[in-house]
Design a binder for these strands. Structure first.
Lengths: 142, 142, 142, 142
DNA sequence: GTGGTCTAGACCACA
DNA sequence: GTGGTCTAGACCACA
């Protein structure tokens, strides 16, 4: 699987998982009907508590991204890609808005903010040209 | 005082206070030697528990932004402005980096990201040209 | 656990805990990765309020001695031993300097001071050859 | 007067005053019957709150070091020198004991402790050969 | 189970 | 008046 968990981040682990699944669906790395690895399997692979994965999967079901397939596990829903594309956009937009608000309220002027954005963006694009969610791109070998 | 607390945010109240004091010092709204309002006074004004303010003030002392003036209260330290300017910059930079990383890893291309940044920045600058610490509800122009 | 709290001292309880953890790490009694007892557990054992322990633990996190292990508790950080060794040394050195300064400024001559140091040191080493954190009442041999 | 207050120390100001008076009496810098400067005068000179001086003087009266002289102020008591000599010794002894206890309990061995004591003592004696309570010795010009 | 945050309120030392 | 400490207890997120 192409999930990469960063412990030691403030973002909760289950939240990281939720986002990465959504982004993978948006990206096409996970497609309609595709089964996700079982919680136990994944928990071993990622070395995290199985409950944490269960929680993430529950959230994804609640949001209509995953659905149970009798006896086989959880699969990506029908319209999930469209939903995830929009979620991805909203999520990024909202967080961008937050951080920019903070910058503006904090007294940074527009030029300074733009410079920061440019520098960070340049650095990122230089480092990871176009791959998804991984420092070392990994073929989908579930 | 020019502090504005948003309860019901994920950011803890004491953390909001800490940041706002730092930003106010960076901005020059609070200057060296200036006394901050007492915990009790502020707690009434902001309608939060005095202990929460005490906690924020202690953090600021630990970070060398505030220092006790015996019997009078807490005052902005000598070199605080410089420290706060750099903290502000670092804080904003770091959060920007996180958000942009997420955007890039999530598969958004550079053009899309730039468009989002531009739009959010334009909206912000239009709505709050130069005020501090206000956070009026914003029309959602998705 | 090997912590011993003296209430009724001028040194705040949380501060006593902070020091004892640092000294324990310096000593090797606590080693890298080792989990500390939970705040609730310890609070029962030491008969103090859990919040007081939380406060001590937070301070230790801020100082880079402890770090959270998600869902399991707080553990001793990687480089903590080195840090604690140096902190211990600095702490003792600084307090020694204070006391000796007071003695010298107070008009005691070198010989007298040395005699006091020798006597106290002898008494201490006689009474607690190598134990940690104990503080039995000591016969006053003035 | 030869008092020197260090704000920004943890030792309370009134306590600093109390000690310095005691040490001055022990030293002979203040002699039996000698009047101390009035609280108001001294408060101006030391730039501290007059209440703080009142408090220190009260403590010194309670301890039998100072006594009121009708209409003239407070004077050093009859047997004060002897008392102060013993207090000085006890005070220093007690604080030395504390710090050495901390050192021993903290796991420093005897050799290390002795080395610290020697170094600090050497430094002190080099810097202030034998003067009382002042970085720059001041003639008693009340 | 773990830690983190917050409230409410007591008590203290200091100026 | 100021800040500092501590207790007691609630509620939350996370694993």
């Amino acid at each position: 699987m192409f999930f990469r968990i960063e412990p030691n981040t403030e973002v909760p682990i289950y939240e990281q998982l939720v986002r990465q699944v959504k982004f993978a669906v948006a990206d096409g790395a996970l497609t309609t009907g595709q089964l996700l690895p079982g919680a136990r399997t994944l928990s071993v692979e990622l070395a995290i508590n199985p409950n944490t994965i269960v929680r993430a999967y529950q959230e994804l079901q609640r949001e209509g991204i995953l659905e149970p397939v009798r006896g086989r596990g959880l699969a990506v829903c029908q319209g999930a890609k469209k939903v995830c594309l929009s979620m991805r956009r909203d999520l990024v937009t909202q967080r961008l808005a937050e951080v920019l608000t903070e910058a503006v309220q904090g007294g940074l002027d527009e030029a300074t903010i733009r410079k920061l954005v440019d520098r960070e963006l340049a650095r990122l694009l230089r480092e990871q040209p176009a791959t998804f969610g991984s420092q070392q791109p990994e073929p989908t070998t579930t």
